[in-house]
Amino acid sequence: MAVVPLQYRFDGPRHAPVVLLLPALGTKWSIWEPQMPELTREARVLRVNHRGHGESPAPEGAYTIAELGGDVLALLDRCEVDRCAVVGVGLGGMTATWLAAREPERVSRLALLSTAAQLPPAARWQRLAALARSSGTVSVVSEYTRSWFTPGFADQRPDIVSRLADELEEVGATGYAGCCDAVATVDQRALLARVRAPTMVVSAVHDPETPPGYGQRIAAGIPGARFETVAGAAHLVNIERADRVNELLVEHLGI
């Protein structure tokens, strides 16, 4: 499959070191807003939207993590970014892992949030893909967003929950389903040992999608990786516990 020209944007000082942020499945670059004030003080932040998300094109058919990673590599080449730190959450974390293993000289530091090297059962992701293709992304919102936040946060900040649900509904069915297929088939366990960048793996204590055991296994497979858990959050830990995640990122990225 051909490379897709991803929608992207830069923020922060023009000549500062680049930090690439990769979002979760069904979300756009807006999920990183809680990190922007901290990261843009000393870094040039590059945000992207995966295939079919935002204004990024969505080819028909199933995608793979390698194809999503290839899109990002092509973007880095186009933007003349030879080396950068990479932060990913969920699907973005899988893509970030592929980048760091495939092109280790291009990734200076790596932070993986709420992600997994493999995420069974594949049948669940195949079912979500089929449902989106037949009935649109509106048909998956209720089920898919259930893991994003703890009930307490959802009650306190219904505005955030509603906004992200609306953004998911705007994601094209083709792009969402193709990315679900990528998650269904991913198995990066053999890639982990090839990651050379200093790595931090962060898991949320109350994440039902990728509970801490998944993060522990990633950290165990990457040489020298650091593992952190964050209390009081579910899958989108960078939003629900932005305070703690920002502390961890600033420390790990050295900015």
Rank of each mutant, 00 (worst) to 15 (best):
Met1Pro: 01
Val3Asp: 07
Pro13Phe: 08
Val19Thr: 15
Leu20Arg: 11
Leu21Ser: 03
Ala24Glu: 01
Ile31Gln: 15
Gln35Met: 11
Leu39Arg: 09
Thr40Asp: 02
Arg44Tyr: 14
His50Leu: 08
His53Gln: 13
Ser56Ala: 08
Ser56Cys: 11
Ala58Lys: 05
Glu60Cys: 00
Thr64Cys: 05
Ile65Asn: 00
Ala66Phe: 05
Glu67Arg: 07
Gly70Ser: 12
Ala74Thr: 14
Leu75Asp: 10
Leu76Met: 15
Val81Trp: 08
Val81Thr: 09
Asp82Ile: 01
Asp82Gln: 14
Cys84Ile: 13
Leu91Arg: 12
Pro104Glu: 02
Pro104Met: 09
Arg109Tyr: 12
Ala116Tyr: 07
Gln118Thr: 10
Gln118His: 13
Ala122Leu: 09
Ala123Asn: 06
Arg127Cys: 01
Leu128Arg: 04
Ala129Met: 05
Ala129Cys: 03
Ser135Thr: 08
Tyr144Asp: 01
Tyr144Arg: 03
Arg146Ser: 14
Gln156Lys: 08
Gln156Arg: 15
Val161His: 14
Arg163Glu: 13
Leu164Met: 12
Glu167Lys: 01
Glu169Gln: 13
Glu170Leu: 13
Glu170Met: 12
Val171Ile: 06
Gly172Lys: 14
Ala173Tyr: 03
Ala177Arg: 09
Val183Tyr: 00
Val183Asn: 00
Arg189Leu: 13
Thr199Met: 06
His206Gln: 15
Gly213Ser: 10
Arg217Phe: 07
Ile218Ser: 01
Ile218Ala: 06
Ala219Phe: 09
Ala219Trp: 08
Ala220Tyr: 08
Ala220Trp: 06
Ala225Phe: 03
Ala233Pro: 03
Glu240Leu: 00
Ala242Asn: 06
Asp243Gly: 09
Arg244Asn: 01
Val245Gly: 07
Asn246Phe: 11
Glu247Cys: 05
Leu253Ile: 08
Ile255Phe: 06
